[in-house]
Amino acid sequence: MTDDLSAVFSLVSMAVLFGSALGYAAVKFATDDDPIADQVDALLPQTQCGQCGHPGCRPYAEAVANDEDEINKCIPGGEDTIHAMADLLGKDFIPLDAEESDVVDVPMVAYIREDECIGCTKCIQACPMDAILGAAKQMHTVIVDECTGCDLCVEPCPVDCIDIIPEKVTHTTWAWPQPDGVGITPGQLIPVRNIA
């Protein structure tokens, strides 16, 4: 009888002990993390292009956080973003849900062929970034620094004068390419121009 009692007692006291320790730890070491949607949103490229089927990055982040959508819908983010989301949410990596032709791995910007623009302001309304400058009947232009290359202004243009072109590489944005790897001679032979 006493054995039973002591067993029960020790079990109960252990439960109390560990329970309170865990509870304490939960309070003490609580991470005040952002809600998941914020964290997911932070991983998205903020192109606001809607190619994921949501009206912007934030809504997609919310959908992902609530498990309402897959993590492989963000085309501009590409595989890196999927990996990052998979890591964050503890999911498996799944390949990007897009045709290969849709995926461009270079940053793009919109470019308005200004001599063709009729100043209809339609693109301004479409741009999620407010990156297009112009007024009715005036030529419009894209603020390259703000443009995310989301493609949303291309559709509404009645005269088809917007192109999405690769962002221009400058001295500051250029980066060294990765060497070709094992088995290959580093560097490349290039013709030197203007040699005397």
Binding site: D41, Q46, Q48, C57, M129
Partner: peptide
């Protein structure tokens, strides 16, 4: 991206 988010 942060900047874009803000603007958006």
């Amino acid at each position: 991206a942060d900047h874009a988010r803000e603007r958006f």
